[in-house]
Amino acid sequence: MSVLAPRRSTLPGFGLTMGLTLTWLSLIVLIPLAGLFVRSTDLSLVQFWDIVTSRRTLSALKISFGLSFAAACVNLVMGTIVVWALVRYRFPGRRLFDAIVDVPFALPTAVAGVALTALFAQKGWLGAPLAAAGIKVAFTPLGIFIAMIFIGIPFVVRTVQPVLIDLDPEIEEAAASLGASRWHIVTKVILPSLTPALLTGFALAFARAVGEYGSVIFIAGNLPNVSEIAPLLIVIRLSEFRYADATAIAVVMLVVAFVIIFAVNRLQRWAQAQAST
């Protein structure tokens, strides 16, 4: 306890609350996650490599990471447009649209999954006109892409929104008074100061899409090597009692998730540094 001793507070309860925090954190989060990594050491490096590079696993990882990246790109562009409209313009229903940006956070993923499938199925409201145009969405990789866009919507909007609101209007005015065109101001002055927030939102949307399960599996079709995402493959391997396979895939996904957390922390520091200059 001496290492953790508080420096200047005279308040009581540090030992008790810190003890409770560390115990509960270890029992619920750290030990179970460590268990996963310990379990993966049952496998030799060759076995691990064989599982991860088998055709089906590799396909699932490619589908999960590739489509998540594409969906995060759409979220980046559309999120910027949505944020710009919400912060800079007045239009009827603006506050309502601002509020519903959070729906993908709040709506249980299974509900989102069945709703998107009903919408984009061949007889669905959007599926029918798309099918008439020769585009099949539900039960194809395109369906996965749509579901991943849905769950990623709030990330870019909510990370960029506070930054755009706090942006000092004087910088824009100064640029305008020096004769810069509006296009020049937006691309050379505003977007650069939004970059850390934009990248953070992109990374968070990407990370969420990679791990997403509920909203994707209904619309995905789940055909091995074609439309089977990595989290679903983990569930399938578990149901076959192939724990080693499930663990190996999970380790790959967790390592990527940790790399993304690290990158986001760096981005946040960059954003803070930029805000203070």
Partner: peptide
């Protein structure tokens, strides 16, 4: 950061870790 960790773990993996602890194997 450690307290935030569960936010970045795939839901499926959040279930898997408990299967690895308490499952038959």
């Amino acid at each position: 950061t450690l307290i935030d960790l569960p936010f970045s773990v795939s839901p499926v993996i959040s279930g898997l870790v408990f299967v690895l602890l308490f499952g038959a194997q």
